[in-house]
Simulated scan of single mutants.
Amino acid sequence: MRIVVGITGASGSVYGYTLIRALYELGVETYVITTQMGEKVLEFETGVTIEQLKQYATILSNKNLFAPTASGSFKTDGMVIVPCSMNTLGAIAHGVGDTLLSRTASVVLKERRKLVVVPRETPLSLIHLENMTKLAQAGSMILPASPGFYQRPKEIWELVNFVVGRILDALDIEHEFIARWGEKH
């Protein structure tokens, strides 16, 4: 299995970092593309640098439109953008492929592969909602970073794992990150 993970400058980079580590632990070939602000927010919020991510995934430069993920002939099983800023979401919704991240998302959509967009913004304007609708209509899954509380979390990592578990579910990747409703814990 091969997954692309995009990290943008929205708050919530801990979701992206946790997903990358989970994919690594699950043996999934992972490619990571970060925006410039995504790198800064990742380090600010988690203390993790892009250099440290290299132990878990192949890092691609957002400026490199010659990277393999820019082409539909490079087969992937999907892409997740987590967290996804409204700037990146808007660019993808309007077909702007001027960075590797937005170009890769465009390729994933045109090839009808799984694109999971995890917006981390509140409140949402009508423009944000319309852009999300446009992406959903194009085949993307909009998966807000909204953790569940029925598992009665006591630690922040439990909230993060809930969202990461839902992302893995959206990609049809088996895992044991979350307690499932109606199943014994």
Rank of each mutant, 00 (worst) to 15 (best):
T122I: 15
V4S: 00
E174Q: 14
R2Q: 12
A22R: 10
E158Y: 00
G95Y: 04
Q36V: 15
D169R: 04
E121V: 13
G16Q: 03
T104I: 01
V41E: 01
L129D: 10
E111P: 03
R166Y: 05
T88I: 10
E155H: 14
L60A: 09
V32D: 09
G9H: 09
Y17A: 13
Y56Q: 07
S146C: 15
M132E: 06
G95L: 07
G78L: 06
I178Y: 00
I7R: 09
D169H: 10
K114I: 11
E155A: 14
R120E: 04
D169L: 10
E158T: 04
R103M: 03
E174P: 12
S71M: 06
M79H: 08
I167E: 11
G38Q: 09
L19F: 06
V82K: 01
W181M: 11
R112Q: 13
K110F: 02
S13L: 01
T69W: 00
I50N: 04
I50T: 15
L101P: 01
L101W: 02
L115K: 06
R166D: 10
Y24M: 12
I156P: 03
V117K: 03
P144N: 08
V5K: 00
I178N: 02
A170T: 11
P153T: 02
R113L: 13
Q55F: 03
I156Q: 02
A67F: 01
I142S: 10
A91N: 13
L168Y: 01
F74C: 10
K63L: 14
E130M: 11
S106R: 12
G78N: 07
E51A: 09
L115A: 03
C84H: 03
I50K: 13
Y150D: 02
M79C: 07
P123R: 13
E43I: 08
I156R: 08
P68S: 07
H175W: 05
L171R: 07
M141V: 15
S125E: 08
L23F: 07
T76L: 14
A138P: 05
G182A: 03
R113G: 09
